[in-house]
Design a protein around this nucleic acid. Structure first.
Lengths: 194, 194
DNA sequence: CCTACCGATCGGTAGG
DNA sequence: CCTACCGATCGGTAGG
């Protein structure tokens, strides 16, 4: 059942190759021929694995979304202290974004290329993802005897900006590992909580 | 000399219209006909004011870059206290990004569509802009008797991520003005400085 | 899995 | 001669 079939492997290869080229040249500027060449297939063969170009983009988005939401829910359920949950969420956010930088660049920059119905799914999943953060921030503030004066939504957006922004400046050959970077950014971002 | 000629006004109109459509549909997916229709001109007329589609994008980038660098330098030279400089820089960063959200979305997401030589200019100007921040953070740390343990580059990237990210979530009909949002985000981002 | 090819659309330019 | 503009159409390329 879970055994990766040959077809599944090829699809994986195409998705990774497409994410790489999309991230460097943009979805619209990338031709199906380029993707085919990059993964060593012919253009018609691509159409054996995906109905069209858009479906490739849709699969990339679905992957990023389900991974993010699943992991966020899991982390928030495995730790008690809300501040610790937020810290782990941000470290994980930075680490995943660095480790899969190409697909995240596509995810953050190609939303207008998606079909209407998936745009709504993306918005919905993003809301669910951010709700995990907001819930933890509220828990933290409620537990706190002298809570800092912060607006939950703005604060969460601020934290996520600091974390997600690594997709633009992280360099794998830099001095820090994604994990180190995650801890550092989470440390800065959560400072207003005291 | 500084008097806006008719031609200058039309160019301004085209740039604003193009920024708006580029931000909603993407540069590559936008046709010259769409831009023309949006500003009430014919497509050939567009070519009277700009050599080609790419030049429109280039002008948008040049505008964002020169505004940002000029303002950053001005702010950093008009205030003494480095922490206050950083605060003002971030408030201004958020405010400008919110007030001109479309052009900033284009600026942050269409870099791969630029001609090679301008990409290098963008990288260079970005370095100059971030250098203003890094210089102030270093000044702050040097002046400080008991400086917090922060890495200058990662901290600045974290601050800029928190600020720039508003281009994705700011809504003009929301409860906060760009100025208020800027102060709030700057307040959060600079917390690690104590 | 390839060669061949279509229907559609694009950026850019001609004449006036 | 220049600036400003339009209706029509070009060569080239994209997804499929």
């Amino acid at each position: 059942m879970g055994r990766p079939s040959r077809a599944h492997e090829v699809r994986r290869l195409i998705l990774d190759g497409a994410a790489d080229i999309f991230s460097r040249r943009g979805y619209r500027a990338t031709s199906m021929n380029e993707i085919a060449a990059a993964v060593g297939l012919s253009k018609p063969t691509l159409y054996h694995y995906f109905h069209n170009k858009e479906e490739i983009l849709v699969r990339l988005y679905e992957e990023v979304m389900s991974d993010a939401v699943d992991d966020a829910v899991e982390i928030s359920e495995s730790v008690e202290d809300p501040r610790e949950v937020l810290h782990r969420l941000l470290v994980y956010r930075v680490r995943t974004t660095c480790e899969r930088q190409s697909i995240h660049k596509v995810f953050f920059e190609e939303e207008e290329e998606l079909p209407r119905d998936l745009v709504e799914t993306v918005i919905e999943q993003r809301r669910r993802y951010e709700d995990v953060y907001r819930t933890q921030v509220r828990r933290f503030l409620d537990d706190h005897p002298d809570p800092p004066d912060i607006d939950v939504t703005v604060f969460v957006n601020s934290c996520l900006g600091a974390a997600n922004w690594v997709y633009k400046w992280y360099r794998p050959d830099g001095p820090r590992t994604p994990e180190q970077l995650g801890r550092e950014i989470a440390f800065y971002a959560l400072h207003p909580l005291g």
